[in-house]
C-alpha cells in the first residue's frame, strides 16, 4: 500500500535531479540543438564567474535574512499581543492571517501598482498630501521593497505558529513567577522566549526553504532589476535557462541552489526527526 507513493516520489526526486546533474556537465543550448558536448566543470566555472553570481548570492541571503528578521521579531510581538485578553480576538486573528492566503502574483501586483507606484500609488498620494516627494520604491530600493512584500506574506505564518505555541505555555508557572515579583520583561525573557525557541526554529527553517524559492514576487515587480539589484539565485537560474536557453549553465546554477537548500534542510530534518520520537 505504501509503494505507489514511494515509487512516485522516488522517480520525482531522482529522474529530474539526475538530468540536471547530467545537463550541468554539457554544453547545451536550446537555440543550438545538436551541438551538445561534454565539458566537465566548465558550466560551474561560468556560473561562479558570472558577474551576476555574487550579487545574486548576496541578494538571496539578504532577502532570506531580511524576511526572517522581520517575520520572527514581528511574529513574536504579534503573537504575544494576540494572546492577551481582548474584544474581538477571533476577528483580529482572521485579519492578521489573511495575507498568507493571497497568491504571490496578486500580492506583488497590488503592492507594486496600487501602493508603491510613484505616480498613482497610495503611498505616493500620502507623501504628496504631507508635502513630501513620492518615493520610487522599485527604482530606489528594489530589494528592500521585495523584502517588504514577502515579509507581509509570511508574517501571518510566523504569527500563527508562534501564537499556537504560546497558547500551550504553562499559565501557572507564569502566575507563580508573577507572584514572586518577576516583572513583565523578566517573565518574557526567561519564560516566554525559552518556551517559544523550538517553534521559532521551526518557523525559521520552514520559511528559509520557501524563501530560497521566491520567484513570482520578483518576476512581476522588478524582473530582477534594475541591473542585478534584485536578482536572486532562483531568478538567475530562471533567466539563464528559460530566457537565454542555456540549459547547461542553468543546470549548474540549479545544482548550486540544491546544495544551498540542502544545508538548511539537514538542520530542519533533524529537528522534525527528533520530534517524531516523542
Amino acid at each position: 500500500m505504501l509503494s505507489p507513493a514511494v515509487i512516485l516520489l522516488f522517480l520525482w526526486m531522482i529522474v529530474p535531479l539526475a538530468m540536471t546533474v547530467y545537463f550541468s556537465f554539457l554544453r547545451f543550448n536550446l537555440l543550438m540543438p545538436g551541438t551538445e558536448e561534454f565539458t566537465g566543470f566548465e558550466n560551474y566555472l561560468y556560473f561562479f564567474t558570472d558577474p551576476s553570481f555574487w550579487p545574486a548570492l548576496i541578494n538571496t541571503l539578504t532577502l532570506v535574512l531580511g524576511v526572517l528578521v522581520i517575520t520572527v521579531v514581528g511574529g513574536v510581538a504579534l503573537a504575544v499581543l494576540l494572546d492577551q485578553p481582548m474584544w474581538g480576538q477571533g476577528i483580529v486573528r482572521i485579519l492578521v492571517i489573511a495575507p498568507f492566503f493571497i497568491m504571490p502574483s496578486v500580492s506583488a501586483l497590488v503592492w507594486k501598482n496600487m501602493l508603491m507606484n510613484p505616480v498613482n500609488g497610495l503611498f505616493a498620494s500620502m507623501a504628496r498630501g504631507l508635502g513630501l516627494e513620492p518615493f520610487d520604491f522599485f527604482a530606489e530600493a528594489p530589494l528592500a521593497s521585495i523584502i517588504a512584500i514577502v515579509a507581509w506574506q509570511w508574517l501571518p505564518f510566523a504569527t500563527l505558529i508562534l501564537l499556537t505555541a504560546l497558547q500551550s505555555l504553562d499559565q501557572e508557572q507564569m502566575e507563580a513567577a508573577e507572584m514572586d515579583g518577576a516583572g513583565w520583561f523578566w517573565r518574557f525573557l526567561h519564560l516566554t522566549i525559552p518556551h517559544l525557541m523550538r517553534s521559532i526554529t521551526v518557523v525559521v527553517l520552514i520559511q528559509t526553504i520557501f524563501l530560497l524559492s521566491v520567484f513570482a514576487e520578483i518576476l512581476v515587480t522588478t524582473n530582477g532589476g534594475p541591473g542585478t539589484a534584485s536578482t536572486t539565485l532562483t531568478f538567475l537560474v530562471y533567466m539563464q535557462s528559460m530566457l537565454q536557453f542555456d540549459v547547461g549553465l542553468g543546470s549548474a546554477g540549479g545544482i548550486v541552489a540544491v546544495i544551498l537548500a540542502n544545508i538548511v534542510a539537514i538542520f530542519l530534518m533533524r529537528m522534525i526527526g527528533r520530534n517524531l520520537e516523542a
Binding site: L2, A5, V6, L9, W12, M13, V15, P16, L17, M19, T20, F23, I209, L212, S213, F215, L233, T234, V237, Y238, S241, M242, V247, G250, S251, G253, G254, I255, A257, V258, L260, A261, N262, V264, A265, L268, M269, I272, G273, L276
Partner: peptide, 23 residues
C-alpha cells in the same frame, strides 16, 4: 521513509526546472 519523503520537499524547484520543462 517519512523523513525521506519530507526531504524531497526540500529540493528547490529551480534545481529541476530545466529537466521538468524539457520532459
Amino acid at each position: 521513509v517519512l523523513m525521506w519523503m519530507l526531504s524531497t520537499k526540500m529540493m528547490p524547484a529551480v534545481g529541476v526546472l530545466v529537466p521538468i520543462y524539457l520532459l
